[in-house]
């Protein structure tokens, strides 16, 4: 993941496991690194099995940062854990990405 000039760059960053207070610092570095101006970045959330407020904050930060530098950040393949956290926090619409998998119980 270089931060070199990124014309029409498309990156997919798969995140897995726990996106929480315990791994927040590490994830923050990773998320900020992957963003680049004019690039399209997709965060694949299919393997996230835990997401807490710290994780949510990070995603919000990444989204805002992406908007600031002109990078298209998309969240995709929301796992059930992600969907539940988005529902609970009311943040789903903030990201605005289509959520394909509906939770079993709403």
């Amino acid at each position: 993941m270089s931060s070199a000039s990124a014309e029409n760059l498309y990156r997919i960053l798969p995140l897995e496991g726990s996106l929480s207070i315990y791994s927040a610092t590490e994830h923050m570095g990773l998320l900020l690194q992957v963003l680049a101006p004019d690039a399209e970045v997709e965060l694949d959330l299919s393997a996230i099995d835990e997401l807490d407020c710290a994780g949510l904050q990070l995603l919000v930060l990444a989204k805002q940062e992406a908007g600031r530098i002109g990078c298209h950040l998309r969240l995709s393949n929301h796992s059930p854990a992600v969907i539940e956290a988005f529902e609970l926090s009311g943040l789903g619409t903030f990201f605005g990405d289509p959520i394909l998998i509906k939770p079993a119980s709403e």
Binding site: T25, M28, C53, L56, E65, S89
Partner: peptide
């Protein structure tokens, strides 16, 4: 309705602090 006003920019962000 989440309020994200207090969330700082990346440079000032402490990932373990709650801003929400």
């Amino acid at each position: 309705v989440p309020l994200l006003d207090r969330l700082p920019s990346a440079a000032e962000m402490d990932p373990e602090t709650c801003y929400l």
